[in-house]
Design a protein around this nucleic acid. Structure first.
Lengths: 117, 117, 117, 117
DNA sequence: GTGGTCTAGACCACC
DNA sequence: GTGGTCTAGACCACA
């Protein structure tokens, strides 16, 4: 399920994080499910294991997954954390725009415009 | 008017661009107003002149300011370009969130929540 | 009585040791009591028998239990050894904190704060 | 000021974190002070730059330092975060021991005993 | 020059 | 087999 777009300029480890969060938010991954091992996923996506490990490490620090030595990584109780992480950048950008004097109406207009396409 | 936050992860040249755009959108800077020279601003903000020059270059490329050899930089007719630049990051973040499966409704909720504070 | 938390970063064999020591210190297990066999416990806790065997081995090495060929493992005369093992990590952490320049007073403050909760 | 003990079995990146925190808590490093660059420190301590970068990354995530692209890493407003990080392991160990039924009195006895040496 | 990211490949403890 | 740590060396954007 996890996929990467090499042409995307976002860091790969972040793409992995987002991808996992998306699957959790969509119900594809549920509490207790085991993620592919770092090595496995790395081979699958043609990446270096360290890159995957970094992504898994961030997800663990955010309490979205937990790792068990010698067994693998598992999705934790979510409590909306995954969804929150998906909108993290958006929140920051919205806050910035509002702080710069853009009105909430203008922002919702942009959302409507984008979602219509 | 132009200010910089060194602990902000955004590149400094971008912070300068945003700062100028904010002033134009807010009416603090009007068509024809002269900006501080790159060297002046650099000394004022304790920056490398190259950084300021890069910011001014981008603003000129975007048609937000224009430079006159030996005289300085001046704000151009705006036609909303400044405002557009301010929402640039927001557009990208919104597009990303929508692409990740977040619904437009959730995004407008976040905006309402943030603008209420 | 013995229980394991898979999301705990401590090695599972150590969790088993601690769990047994806790029961001994609390009086739930007394001198001469028979522990579940390694195979039994492994099936009960969904663990690899080797992991349980490793834990029992350490407990025996520390003189907290003793094994009788073909009969099983039994808790030994304790003499405070179990209690000592429970505070093993604490001693190390305290030593480390003191070595880092934290004052004994600060540490006792933390203990009081934690025990009040 | 920052030093490493290769014979210590704690991860090197953690030793670096602790070392920096110690210096901040002791007032050797103050808000706004620049840390040695990752490459510089790595060469000094005979380490790989990545190891230092990992340590700096953790300190930044914990809000103890902040990094600026192209300039370096600087100590942030501390507000006791550094001290808190120094006692992090101790808190966890104390909580664990208390949870295992050890009395607060026994723990303070251990501290007194250790600090007397 | 700096930090941020990535790859390649190694060792370890744990299961 | 797994994750956690470390080394070596590369590329990039930024200042």
């Amino acid at each position: 399920m996890i996929s990467i777009d090499p042409s995307d300029k976002a860091p790969i480890f972040e793409q992995i994080c987002k991808s996992v969060c998306r699957d959790i938010a969509a119900g594809v991954l549920c509490e207790g499910d085991r993620l592919p091992s770092a090595r496995e996923l790395a081979k699958l996506l043609q990446l270096n294991p360290n890159t995957v490990a970094k992504a898994y490490g961030m997800l663990e620090r955010d309490g979205i997954i937990y790792s068990v030595q010698g067994k693998g990584c598992f999705v934790a109780k979510h409590e909306g954390k995954a969804n929150e992480k998906l909108t993290e950048n958006f929140r920051a950008a919205a806050r910035e725009a509002l702080g710069a004097g853009v009105t909430p109406g203008e922002l919702t207009d942009i959302i409507n415009e984008l979602s219509r396409k």
